[in-house]
Amino acid sequence: MSQQQIHLEADNLADLLLRAYEAAYEQGWTDGLPVIPAIPELVDRFVAASGRAGGGVIGLVPPRKGRATVRSAAVNAVMAGCRPEYMPLILAALEAMLDPAYPLEFMQVTTNPMTPFLLVNGPIRRELEVNCGTGCLGPGWRANATIGRAIRLMMINLGGALPGVYSKVSFGSPLRYSYICGENEEESPWAPFHAERGFAREDSTVTVFKASNFCNISGGEGVGADEILRQIATNMPPMYGGGDGVLLLIGINHAHSLHEAGLSKQDIRQRLWELARLPASHFAADFAQIETAAGRGDGASVWRARKPEEIYLAVAGGAGPQDVYIGAGMPQTRVVRRG
């Protein structure tokens, strides 16, 4: 992204605000929603909050190979409506997405609407007010709305993934505006996700998944662990693009029910892996063959993940008999280092 500047004038503030929005839209810098104009003074403030040098190169964003620097990330964070203190988290997520093991180029250009999903762990959730509880995947929370949006704006402005130009996405997805939440560690009966991956509990981390969908699973309240898991597994169908694993966000009610029944996270993974299977005859023959070749089928049935360890579990959301299934995999976790 070149650091192009435009000069705007108007007779009054209302016209200036509208012109700023129109100009950004005409330049193709937005996701369609209004943006905060990234004036140099604001960008400087965001760079300073990152604790890094503005020119520091983080990597090249595919497919257009735009140079991601701290400053270009700051420009997009300003436009997205972020607070300056979000910058270390945004940069950590960007670094995770640019890891060679993360399929960012594929995600940017494919017809499938896959998108990054960000899971935030550790003290930074509270410091930045990343919503982990009630409504954590919905609107109304600035950190959740704008950090994910900054990620998408970088994918557009640095990577060039405008639909119809570099992106061949057929439908796109509302998840592409912002897809992020924190883990509800305070109400989880188990060790948090990042601790399971070898990080210290007091570490602040962001994990970026390749994600394909959102499926809220309702039901199963108060009927025991077996029924809860059966209900969840039935709503975890195999699907193209999600075939690398599952991220299950377990609601706090079910988390406590399962924990009280004596189940560990590994027990839940194993049980879901056994239950989340469907007859191969339910699918197109090609799909069933591909899944079988990938280790997720045996000719007679197709299942959701190659092994239980590809079912990733985190506790999130508020009270209620709800869980969320996300076809997701290839997680990349980074420690958020504050300046």
């Binding site: 005409e26 193709g28 405008l162 639909p163 130009v165 061949k168």
Partner: peptide, 11 residues
């Protein structure tokens, strides 16, 4: 493509 920054049909 000249002047095109987005399109609902592939450009």
């Amino acid at each position: 493509p000249e002047g095109v920054v987005r399109s609902s049909t592939a450009v």
